[in-house]
Write a protein that binds this DNA or RNA. Structure first.
Lengths: 218, 218
DNA sequence: CGCGAGATTGATTCTACTCAACACTAGTGG
DNA sequence: CCACTAGTGTTGAGTAGAATCAATCTCGCG
């Protein structure tokens, strides 16, 4: 039930770097020689097709690691969504330490599971289910990302303010949709009273459980 | 250029298990307490939505590891596509060894990159591009999975026999399509002379480069 | 030979995309 | 203070691509 707390890469000569919002940490194709861990803020990883189509493949949270690649090059571009601080560790450092390795494995496994879930979203879910899943993903303390607390609206399970930190375009590119479809679905959720839109990137969930019912996982 | 060779988990008390074709190694929800490495054969990992929609999230090859989960439970079902042998290692074993950890990281990183690529396919590619990408993925010694050797058909870059080991349904569930769409696209590729179908799961690529041009990555 | 699972093909429907117009917001400068 | 602008978001109309529904085919096997 308890969400696994992400380990953090302490000391070990880790260099802390600050980034502004919408800064690029590295580009797809850059040399991959360091390990990064997000210390604070939000970062997205995305890939581009030559004709400009973009897919956001991961949305990183504090504790998540990135920058590793099977080859010599980065397979994604890493761009901040908000101000962010990033720990950098040299790969050699990591390889030498059992402890760092263990933490690394934990992080990678966690992110892998999220990628699996996201593949289901991209491959099998409708537009509404995608947007609902995305919003649920942003709710703090969901039951480990798996589902909602249950269809038991005791009292506190309702209402939640979300700060998206993403444009409609970024959301669309994450969900494999177009900007217009995202906008339509969001408007529709508003019309149905499931959410309230305070500002375009500030959304209030009126009924979390109701939203969770729309994710396709029930 | 050289494809990174997958490390294999030697000895370390690894138990070898044999599976027949279409055997289930574990189900989604099973307790996750062991690490598995595919020694030979092919295995797919998939997730199910409650209404029966299925998404194949990974197709594993010898050297790939699986069975790790961020939580206590498996997040996917693992089912063999062919006869397969699997190494099992206790998690404690792995945690104790720097060497195993290092190999593990390498495997996970590699699979992560493939998952990223697959997210692009599911989120942004057309049906034709998906099928073309899938077939290219099955070609041995592609340039590390990234692309084709180049538009230089010197002589040997053409012709390649593929054994799919998958039904149309399994392919469809991997590509986020329906069985009918996969069938139509395959028929279309045949009609256009790009491939030849020897048996429904045995396909000959006539022009690899031509096919690669249809993957969307050029 | 007949059966059944898997694959193919056709006709139709529907979801999300495309194209296009318009609205909202914040920032700029007269 | 208020146009003006640029970037972002919303909404509408029409379309295209894949899904759905349904019929037929293929092939291996008892």
């Amino acid at each position: 039930m308890a969400v696994a707390t992400q380990p953090t890469f302490e000391a070990f000569g880790a260099k802390l770097t600050k980034f502004g919002a919408h800064d690029v940490v590295y580009y797809e194709g850059d040399e991959a020689k360091r390990l990064y861990q997000l210390a604070s803020g939000t970062i997205m990883l995305f890939k581009l097709l030559p004709d400009g189509r973009r897919q956001v493949v991961e949305i990183l949270r504090p504790g998540d690691i990135f920058g590793l690649s099977a080859g010599e090059e980065q397979d994604c571009t890493a761009e901040t969504l908000t101000e962010a601080t990033v720990r950098e560790v040299d790969l050699k450092q990591v390889e030498a330490s059992v402890d760092l390795q263990r933490q690394l494995t934990k992080c990678l496994t966690n992110q892998m599971n999220i990628l699996h879930e996201h593949a289901v979203l991209l491959g099998r879910k409708s537009a509404v289910e995608r947007v609902a899943s995305f919003l649920m993903y942003l709710v703090p303390n969901r039951g480990g990302g798996v589902g909602c607390v249950g269809p038991d609206p005791s009292k506190s399970d309702d209402g939640c303010d979300l700060q998206l930190h993403m444009t409609r375009q970024e959301i669309a590119d994450y969900l494999g949709l177009t900007i217009e479809t995202v906008s339509r679905v969001v408007s529709d959720l508003k019309r149905r009273g499931v959410i309230r839109i305070d500002r375009s990137d500030k959304i209030h969930l009126n009924r979390i459980c109701g939203l969770c019912q729309m994710t396709g996982i029930h």
